[in-house]
Computed example of a mutant assay.
Amino acid sequence: MKETIIFDVRKLTGDALAWPALKGAAKLLKANGTVAFPTETVYGLGANALDETAIESIYTAKGRPSDNPLIVHISRRDMLNDLVASVPETAARLMDAFWPGPMTLIFKKRSVVPDKVTGGLDTVAIRMPSHIVARALIDLSNLPIAAPSANLSGKPSPTTAEHVIHDLMGRVDGIVLGDDAMVGLESTVIDMTGDIPVILRPGAITEMMVAEIAGDCETDAALKALKGEKSVPKAPGMKYRHYAPNAEVTVFTGDTVGIIKAFEAAIDEAAAGDYKIAILLFSEDLAVLNRLMADNTCGLDHAVLFDQGSAKDPAVFASRLFRDLRASDDFGCKRVLVHGIAEEGIGSAIMNRLLKAAEGSVIRI
């Protein structure tokens, strides 16, 4: 077990570059240590992107396969030139539009970037986060920081400081305690090495948003494998089971009335079997289900109902998803049932995460 130093910046104000806590965290990074820190997407686990020993510490802390590429985080555009072979004009336009923010771009890499960062690929993924703490930490360390999500490999990504402490206390050198992640889903990953941008992982920056800037955009065929279509992933990182709680996850799609009735039946089944289930559903569904179950207090004792916000505001669903998947384990739930969302806009990213968590287990009603 490591001695993990806690750097609490939650109540600090003013210039983040002057915060002693962040200076202490940056000192650890400069010494090739591992430091978890907040970003606007999820919490990241960072280390010096140019040192193989530091990178190996990330994989060890997470229990992450070493062929899984990491995203390199920068705080200034000029840092990009030292890491990538060239910056296509289309990539520059996307950076102008969406950086700093939840967008990762893949470029051909320079030799200075270790193979351990890229999983042996000749490309490197780069992101400039918008979170004030993340940007200041990178500036203070004066290093590009490789950082996957700050969770144990395969588990739901952490969106709060408490999630990070739960997973990584004693496994990393430092944890920066900040505010909760705003977006709640990892960044959109876009391959810029071909003729047009190709989305390898959906996120808050949608295909339509990219196409409006770039003129064209595609989503990689490997993502269709989550819907039962066969395809070969283009990059190690596009593994199948991710984001999963200990409980078995099932996603329900189709007719809303039928889905609510299926949830009601599942609650009765849980009560009969004397186990707990978690249900993630929209505010509108929750109101209906509560009316249906008003006289069934025994059944409700076996169900934990998580409000994912209105179906009209999918950004709320995104911000709460990982939090509620983790909470299902805290409540000791055996199963997690989720009302799926239309794959439009950020809904595509939500369903991408859900289908991986459920290992493709979908019930269409």
Score class of each variant (00 low, 15 high):
residue 297 T to M: 11
residue 274 D to E: 08
residue 5 I to P: 00
residue 152 L to I: 13
residue 55 I to N: 00
residue 39 T to V: 15
residue 49 A to V: 11
residue 318 A to K: 00
residue 88 P to R: 05
residue 124 V to D: 02
residue 53 T to P: 05
residue 64 R to K: 11
residue 265 A to F: 05
residue 359 E to R: 08
residue 331 F to T: 09
residue 342 A to G: 08
residue 79 M to L: 03
residue 149 S to P: 07
residue 160 T to W: 08
residue 277 I to Y: 12
residue 143 L to Q: 03
residue 124 V to M: 01
residue 101 G to C: 10
residue 223 L to V: 11
residue 242 H to T: 08
residue 306 F to K: 02
residue 243 Y to P: 07
residue 178 G to T: 10
residue 220 D to P: 02
residue 128 M to C: 13
residue 249 V to G: 13
residue 206 T to E: 02
residue 363 I to V: 15
residue 214 A to E: 08
residue 134 A to F: 11
residue 283 S to C: 12
residue 364 R to T: 13
residue 350 I to F: 07
residue 204 A to Q: 15
residue 193 T to K: 04
residue 32 N to A: 13
residue 33 G to Q: 00
residue 310 S to R: 14
residue 344 E to L: 12
residue 171 R to S: 15
residue 120 G to F: 12
residue 317 F to Q: 02
residue 256 T to H: 14
residue 315 A to I: 01
residue 134 A to C: 15
residue 138 I to C: 14
residue 261 K to H: 15
residue 78 D to Y: 11
residue 335 R to M: 15
residue 192 M to T: 09
residue 5 I to Q: 12
residue 125 A to H: 09
residue 239 K to F: 13
residue 173 D to C: 13
residue 154 G to K: 06
residue 194 G to A: 01
residue 167 D to K: 01
residue 133 V to W: 02
residue 39 T to I: 03
residue 75 S to H: 03
residue 171 R to D: 04
residue 52 E to C: 02
residue 69 P to D: 07
residue 179 D to I: 08
residue 191 D to W: 04
residue 133 V to Y: 00
residue 277 I to W: 02
residue 257 V to P: 03
residue 76 R to W: 10
residue 25 A to N: 05
residue 127 R to N: 10
residue 286 L to E: 06
residue 247 A to C: 14
residue 218 E to H: 14
residue 32 N to E: 06
residue 54 A to K: 03
residue 208 M to Q: 14
residue 251 V to S: 00
residue 68 N to H: 15
residue 1 M to C: 08
residue 67 D to M: 10
residue 332 G to C: 11
residue 301 D to T: 09
residue 178 G to F: 14
residue 10 R to V: 09
residue 235 A to R: 05
residue 28 L to C: 01
residue 187 S to E: 03
residue 35 V to R: 02
residue 123 T to W: 00
residue 3 E to T: 13
residue 262 A to R: 03
residue 3 E to D: 15
residue 152 L to F: 11
residue 143 L to M: 13
residue 46 G to L: 06
residue 342 A to Y: 10
residue 8 D to G: 08
residue 231 S to D: 14
residue 195 D to I: 12
residue 155 K to H: 14
residue 113 V to G: 05
residue 89 E to H: 15
residue 92 A to Y: 13
residue 146 A to I: 02
residue 214 A to T: 07
residue 185 L to S: 11
residue 129 P to Y: 07
residue 294 A to K: 14
residue 354 L to I: 11
residue 157 S to V: 03
residue 181 A to L: 05
residue 25 A to L: 03
residue 285 D to E: 06
residue 37 F to D: 00
residue 104 T to P: 07
residue 75 S to E: 08
residue 14 G to M: 05
residue 267 I to D: 03
residue 102 P to Q: 12
residue 82 D to G: 09
residue 231 S to E: 13
residue 352 N to Q: 13
residue 20 P to C: 04
residue 37 F to G: 01
residue 40 E to S: 09
residue 101 G to E: 05
residue 5 I to A: 04
residue 118 T to W: 08
residue 75 S to D: 12
residue 153 S to P: 07
residue 127 R to H: 11
residue 251 V to A: 04
residue 345 G to Y: 04
residue 212 E to W: 10
residue 139 D to H: 10
residue 224 K to H: 15
residue 170 G to R: 08
residue 90 T to L: 10
residue 109 K to W: 04
